[in-house]
Amino acid sequence: MKSIKTFVAVIALATVSFGSFAQSVTAYGSHLDTAEARIAAKAQEAGASSYKITSARVGNQVYMTADLIK
């Protein structure tokens, strides 16, 4: 029973530490290029080495979400 509790604690701590590195940002723009430029600026401001765009919706404006990679 103690080993199960230890295993669960290790998994929980590993998940929390991994989640603390992930950061997502959003941006609006009139075009895809504008929204991506804003994402790039936010990534640079946050000190991220790169970013991965996870979603983009186009309507009257472009709404874009990205995960920052540190």
Rank of each mutant, 00 (worst) to 15 (best):
A46H: 14
E36W: 04
G59L: 02
V62H: 06
A56R: 02
F21G: 12
E45N: 12
T34G: 10
A41K: 06
R38E: 01
S24K: 15
A41H: 05
R57W: 02
S20C: 11
D33E: 14
S49L: 10
F21R: 10
F21L: 11
I53E: 04
A40Q: 09
I39G: 00
A46D: 12
V25D: 09
S30A: 11
T34C: 08
T54P: 00
F21D: 07
E45C: 08
A41L: 09
A41N: 05
A22W: 09
S55I: 01
K42T: 02
S50L: 04
S30M: 11
T26D: 10
E45T: 13
R38S: 01
D33L: 15
D33I: 09
Q23I: 14
S55K: 08
N60G: 11
Y51L: 09
K52E: 07
E36G: 01
R38C: 00
K42Y: 03
Q23P: 03
K42D: 05
A56Y: 01
R38Y: 01
T54Q: 05
A56F: 01
S50K: 06
A41Q: 07
G47A: 13
G47R: 13
G59K: 07
S55L: 03
R57L: 02
V25Q: 06
A41G: 03
A37K: 07
A37Q: 10
S49K: 14
D33C: 08
S20E: 08
S24T: 15
R57C: 00
L32W: 05
D33H: 09
S20K: 08
V58D: 02
S30N: 13
I39R: 00
Y28T: 13
A56I: 05
A40Y: 00
A22E: 11
Q61D: 05
I39A: 00
Y28L: 15
A27G: 07
R57F: 04
A37I: 02
Q61A: 04
Q44L: 14
G29E: 13
A48Q: 08
A46T: 06
Y28A: 11
H31M: 07
V25M: 10
A40T: 04
A27Q: 09
A22F: 14
T34L: 10
I39F: 00
R38H: 01
S24P: 07
A22Y: 09
R57D: 06
H31Q: 11
V25T: 11
A40D: 02
A35P: 03
G59E: 07
E36I: 10
I39Y: 00
F21A: 12
Y28R: 14
L32Q: 14
A41T: 06
G59Y: 03
A56L: 03
H31F: 09
V58E: 08
L32A: 13
G59W: 03
T34D: 15
S55A: 12
R57T: 05
T26R: 07
V62S: 06
G59F: 04
S50W: 01
T34E: 15
R38G: 01
V62K: 04
Q23E: 12
E36H: 08
S30L: 10
V58I: 08
K52L: 11
F21E: 08
A43L: 07
S30E: 15
T54W: 02
Q61M: 03
S24N: 15
L32V: 13
V58S: 05
K42R: 12
K52N: 07
S50R: 06
A37T: 02
A48P: 08
N60F: 06
R38K: 01
A22P: 04
A46L: 12
E45Q: 14
S50M: 04
S30V: 11
A37C: 02
A48M: 10
A22R: 14
A40P: 00
